[in-house]
């Protein structure tokens, strides 16, 4: 029947569409590799164990934000008894000193766009921002 042409066409469109990740990734030569991250500059100690940080660092950062902004408390006692200053720019980015080669690698790999950087400034990038625009706010944030 003449409808079979349309049904077959529809079926082909569906099958091609639904298998899009398969043929597209293979055609593009994508490989299942984890992004390579820049090692922290100040040794292996972090504010929490690796497994926790890998999966749940955003929870910790949110908790820090609430603690600092609402309670004014910046002192954080880590799981191993060390104390840290709760600060994204001063503590996290002090050790993980390159946002593009640390934070962004996994975030862009997993398609995550966190809004940390709506307010916070990467100290390294801030220098270029200052030179580029000379915006007073950017300077203020960077400090």
């Amino acid at each position: 029947m003449r409808d079979r042409v349309w049904i077959t066409l529809g079926l082909i469109v569906f099958l091609v569409g639904i298998t899009y990740p398969i043929w597209f990734n293979n055609a593009a030569g994508v490989r299942a590799e984890a992004p390579v991250l820049r090692k922290p500059v100040k040794g292996p100690n972090c504010v929490a164990p690796l497994e926790y940080m890998r999966a749940s660092h955003m929870e910790l950062l949110t908790a820090w934000r609430d603690e600092v902004v609402r309670q004014g408390n910046r002192r954080f006692v880590a799981f191993d008894g060390r104390t840290y200053t709760m600060s994204l720019s001063k503590t996290c980015l002090d050790c993980h000193d390159n946002r593009a080669e640390f934070c962004d690698r996994c975030h862009s790999y997993a398609g995550v766009s966190p809004y940390c950087w709506d307010c916070h400034v990467d100290p390294r990038q801030a220098r270029t921002v200052r030179a580029w625009a000379g915006r007073p706010q950017a300077e203020g944030w960077a400090r």
Binding site: P21, I22, N25, N26, V30, R31, A32, E33, A34, P35, E51, R54, A55, S56, E59, C106, Y109, A110, V112
Partner: peptide
């Protein structure tokens, strides 16, 4: 939560 990068590795591995 889980290791989301590991999850993507798994799915991409399946797809490729």
């Amino acid at each position: 939560k889980t290791d989301i990068v590991g999850v993507k590795q798994l799915t991409l591995g399946l797809m490729t």
